[in-house]
């Protein structure tokens, strides 16, 4: 095990490289979660559609994503996409992560949409609103609010999962840590350093999510 002072000195001296890598990790996570939310909402709406075939398509998507390892999905999308058209490493990784996160987010939305009391739909319809207007104006705002805690959780999972983008040579946190570690014959120090970066990021995210939830809860009253 490295000594504490060695760990601390390395933490300080490597911070430039790690902060650059952290920005890549954050970009990758934010982009993949935002696109994942769009995917998730789309497939959740397919799932609650009255057209059965659309529901099956949504089921298939969730089945494929949940049934295969993320690293396999990343490799398939990375090699698949780069074979078909030019795509940067960043976007290959981001789209693979978005595709993956989207399935879990679809399940989150499906659950919170279905948790909204069916009386809300009836109230909307009884006032002459169409089904789609009622979903958009009455059901979804309530479902979104309920989705925030699990979405925050998915954000944290997505942040950590983005480390797998190292395997398609993205210079994100984990890749930088292993590269520096092997170059300096000091793997353990750099792994502990990268763990600290992940912990701090997750702690900040957790705080941000809880502040956001509190803010929304105010308008609930």
């Amino acid at each position: 095990m490295p000594s504490f002072s060695h760990f601390f000195d390395t933490l300080i001296s490597s911070k430039g490289l790690f902060i650059d890598a952290m920005m890549v990790t954050l970009e990758l996570t934010v982009v993949s979660i935002l696109i994942g939310i769009i995917f998730g909402l789309f497939f959740a709406l397919l799932k609650i559609s009255r057209i059965k075939v659309l529901g099956y398509i949504s089921n298939l998507y969730v089945f494929l994503v949940r049934g295969t390892p993320l690293i396999v999905q990343i490799f398939i999308l990375y090699f698949g996409f780069s074979g078909i058209f030019l795509i940067s490493d960043f976007w290959a990784a981001a789209l693979a992560l978005a595709f993956h996160n989207g399935a879990y987010i679809a399940e989150i939305f499906r659950g919170t949409i279905q948790s909204v009391d069916k009386g809300q739909m009836e109230a909307g319809r009884s006032l002459g609103m169409t089904r789609s207007t009622t979903i958009r104006r009455i059901i979804l705002p309530q479902a979104f609010r309920r989705a925030l805690p699990p979405l925050g959780n998915q954000f944290i999972i997505g942040l950590k999962d983005s480390s797998l983008a190292a395997f398609i040579s993205m210079n994100e946190l984990f890749n930088v840590a292993t590269t520096l570690g092997s170059n300096n014959f000091d793997e353990m120090t750099y792994l502990l350093i990268v763990a600290v970066y992940y912990l701090v990021l997750v702690a900040l995210l957790t705080l941000a999510v809880s502040l956001f939830e509190k803010k929304l809860a105010v308008s609930d009253r």
Partner: peptide, 9 residues
């Protein structure tokens, strides 16, 4: 409705 079904948001 019996249970009002007001829009809580």
């Amino acid at each position: 409705f019996q249970h009002f079904n007001l829009f809580p948001h």
